[in-house]
Simulated assay, not measured.
Amino acid sequence: MLNETYEIVIRGTLSPAVLGAFPGFDVTEVEDGFTHLVGTVPDQARLHGLLDTVASLNIELVSVNPRSPDATRTDQHQSTRREET
């Protein structure tokens, strides 16, 4: 069983109707034209299903990143994140 948290980064923003295609995922950030969806994936079949949904909706996939639930963003766009002090 996989049951890992994943961050899916896509180019652009998603309408509320399209976000409904990703149940259990939260939008954690919309920055510089990228949307970050984070949620728990129970197994490989669900992960592949999510990627199929992205493709079938013609959404441009930027990256898929496993991450711990309490981790800060670690993808390629990390340098654009401003940390609050």
Rank of each mutant, 00 (worst) to 15 (best):
R46K: 11
S63T: 11
A55R: 15
S68G: 06
M1P: 00
L2W: 02
D26G: 05
R81T: 07
D32G: 09
V27A: 05
D52L: 12
V64Y: 07
T80C: 07
T28C: 08
P69M: 00
T74S: 15
V27D: 04
L14G: 04
T72V: 09
G24C: 03
A45K: 13
A17S: 14
D43P: 00
L47D: 03
V9D: 15
L37D: 06
V38T: 10
H48S: 06
Q44E: 02
Q78W: 13
E84Q: 07
D43S: 06
Q76F: 15
N65T: 06
I10A: 01
D52N: 15
D43K: 03
E83Q: 09
G12Y: 01
N58R: 12
D52W: 01
V38K: 12
L37K: 09
E7Q: 14
L2Q: 03
G39Y: 02
V64W: 13
P16Y: 05
G24W: 04
R81G: 09
P66I: 07
F25V: 00
S68W: 13
A17R: 13
S56D: 14
L50A: 05
G24L: 01
D70G: 09
N58K: 14
G24M: 01
L2G: 00
D52H: 12
V62G: 03
R73F: 15
F34T: 02
T80P: 01
E84I: 07
T35L: 05
T13E: 14
P16S: 11
P66G: 08
F25A: 02
I10K: 00
R67Q: 11
D70M: 09
A55F: 15
L57Y: 14
A45F: 09
G24S: 07
T13R: 13
E83N: 06
N58I: 05
H36L: 07
V54T: 09
G12M: 05
V18Q: 06
E31I: 01
N58W: 07
A17C: 06
R46G: 01
E31W: 01
L61Q: 13
F34M: 08
D70Y: 15
G39D: 00
D32V: 06
L37S: 08
T80S: 12
P23A: 14
T40L: 11
N65E: 11
P69V: 13
E60K: 15
Q78Y: 14
G20Q: 01
V30K: 07
R67S: 10
T28N: 10
E31Q: 10
P42S: 00
H36E: 03
M1I: 00
E83M: 06
V27P: 08
R73S: 14
A45R: 11
F25P: 00
Q44G: 03
F22G: 04
S15D: 10
L51T: 02
T53R: 15
H36Y: 12
H36Q: 02
F25E: 00
T28Q: 09
T85E: 10
N3I: 02
S79R: 12
L14D: 04
D75V: 00
T72H: 14
V18Y: 00
R67H: 03
V27E: 03
T28Y: 04
